[in-house]
Simulated scan of single mutants.
Amino acid sequence: MANVTFKGNSIHLLGQEVKVGDTAPDFTVLANDLSEIHLSNYEGKVKLISVVPSIDTGVCDQQTRRFNTEAAGLENTSILTISNDLPFAQKRWCAAAGVENLDTLSDHRDLSFGKAYGVAIEELRLLTRAVFVVDSQNKVVYVEYVPEATDHPDYEAALEAAKNAH
């Protein structure tokens, strides 16, 4: 498993670590309207999956805004921001932040995404910061488990992977 800390403290991640070359695991998360969303909802598209502990915190806010801004430059790509925040909180945050170019999705119900991608923090019931890029054939082409969950991901590397994915 990825070796990750949260505010300098070691944490335990539940689920399986995803690696480049893997077939992307399916998952069930909730959209802001409480409808179920699965990987198959984005069939035929490149998926940039931005995982954040809580959208209401500084780094998570900046990460989500950055990918929202970059979305216009990515062809045939859907950007998903996944956290354990409630769908209502995600919807409120998006409205206040003017974020409209990506989907905020909630894994609060059963940690389906968190366990499938090895990002569920056992001690906190939050998701650790990570970025995955999945191509249109559902192959994982980029993975970053951010070593310190309160740090920023490598935006440029993730965006480059999404631009090069087909």
Rank of each mutant, 00 (worst) to 15 (best):
G21F: 03
G21V: 08
T23K: 14
A24T: 02
P25N: 03
P25W: 00
D26T: 15
D26K: 02
D26M: 08
F27G: 06
F27A: 13
F27P: 15
T28A: 15
L30T: 02
A31L: 12
N32Q: 14
D33K: 10
L34M: 14
L34D: 11
L34G: 04
S35L: 05
E36A: 15
E36Q: 14
I37Y: 01
I37F: 03
I37G: 02
L39E: 03
L39M: 04
L39S: 03
S40A: 10
N41H: 11
Y42A: 07
E43P: 02
K45F: 00
K45C: 05
K45L: 15
K45G: 03
V46H: 01
V46F: 01
K47G: 07
K47P: 02
K47T: 11
I49T: 11
I49H: 03
I49W: 00
S54P: 10
D56L: 13
D56I: 14
T57N: 02
G58V: 06
V59R: 13
C60L: 01
D61R: 07
D61T: 13
Q62C: 09
Q63V: 06
R65N: 12
R65Q: 14
R65V: 05
R65H: 09
F67S: 02
F67I: 05
F67H: 05
F67C: 04
N68A: 05
N68P: 07
T69I: 11
E70I: 01
E70Q: 02
E70R: 00
A71S: 06
A72Y: 00
A72T: 03
L74K: 09
E75Y: 04
N76E: 07
N76M: 08
N76Y: 04
I79H: 09
L80C: 06
L80F: 04
S83Y: 09
D85N: 14
P87K: 00
F88E: 14
A89Y: 03
A89Q: 09
Q90E: 15
Q90P: 09
K91H: 08
K91N: 01
R92I: 08
R92K: 12
W93A: 11
A95I: 04
A95R: 08
A95M: 09
A96E: 09
A97R: 05
A97S: 12
V99N: 10
E100V: 13
E100F: 06
L105M: 06
H108G: 04
R109N: 08
D110P: 09
L111M: 13
L111V: 10
L111N: 15
S112G: 09
F113K: 00
G114M: 10
K115V: 14
K115N: 15
A116E: 10
A116I: 00
A116H: 04
V119N: 05
I121G: 14
E123W: 04
L126D: 04
L126T: 08
L126M: 14
L127I: 01
A130F: 00
V131F: 05
F132V: 03
F132K: 10
V134E: 09
D135G: 11
S136C: 03
Q137H: 08
N138L: 01
K139S: 14
V140P: 12
V140I: 10
V141M: 06
Y142D: 07
V143T: 15
Y145L: 03
Y145P: 13
V146A: 07
E148Q: 08
E148R: 03
T150Y: 08
T150N: 13
H152N: 12
P153G: 13
P153L: 05
D154T: 01
Y155Q: 04
E156Q: 14
E156K: 10
A157R: 13
A158P: 11
A158R: 02
L159N: 02
